[in-house]
Amino acid sequence: MKILVCVKQVPDMEGRFNPNAAGTWFDEAGLAFRMNDYDEFAVEEAVRLKERLGGEAEVTVLSVGPDRVIETIRKAMAMGCDRGVHVRDEGAAERDPWQIASMIAGYARSRAYGLVFTGMQSLDRGSAQVGVLVAELLGLSCATTAVGFSCDGGTATVERELEGGAKAVVRLKLPALVTCQLGLNNPRYPTLPNILKAKRRELVILTPDELGIEAPLVATAGFSRHERSGACTVLEGELDGLAARVIDLLDERTAVLRRGGGR
């Protein structure tokens, strides 16, 4: 079986975000980039499936973005993907989900993948659209938010996570696309020998035009820092003083210390 896994490189969310000059997305200066958390679970599940199937199963990892995303493709290969596809697109960060999906579908359309894995959403844009759109464009069956996955012959069984932690167990006909939720598996850490091996694996570079990128369906009219609505007091300084302030505030604002806690 041929397996495709789609990954996105995103900034570390602990970084400080500033709007770019156009005010349409963030300025990348000073941000550290890494593989989207959800996509690590997608890569791991794709590689596990390949390992279970053995034989001729193979996994292709695809990422759309500027040259920095090669690092993420190499990481996925070090986790066990056999080949990489880099859709080199300097403008990827500001493409809408429909455009990204059109490129992925453009690549996958003639390649007969039995299973496609994606993360359920990205940490930065968080639209939760791309995977489902790819499935619709390719006519694949699709389930989102997978926290459990198994595959047997012509069907896949997916545990979908629901509100409150309940699950819906669903069966999909193959070919299928599954969007992966956090906790689906335990993504492996690439080992040094595998990191070295990944450097020798095939990496194909394609352009958005070759893959038939479509025109956008939405435009960004503004991008700004989220102004806090609450009145949060920020305390910093030396630790003893901080702890004393916290205890004073606990005493002032809660009954916790009077109830016997802290004694």
Partner: peptide, 18 residues
């Protein structure tokens, strides 16, 4: 447009459907 959060809630975007 429509306002939506991004970057783990740190930023917000205004998005206009075309």
């Amino acid at each position: 447009g429509f306002v939506t959060g991004c970057c783990n809630g740190k930023m917000r975007r205004t998005v206009r459907p075309l």
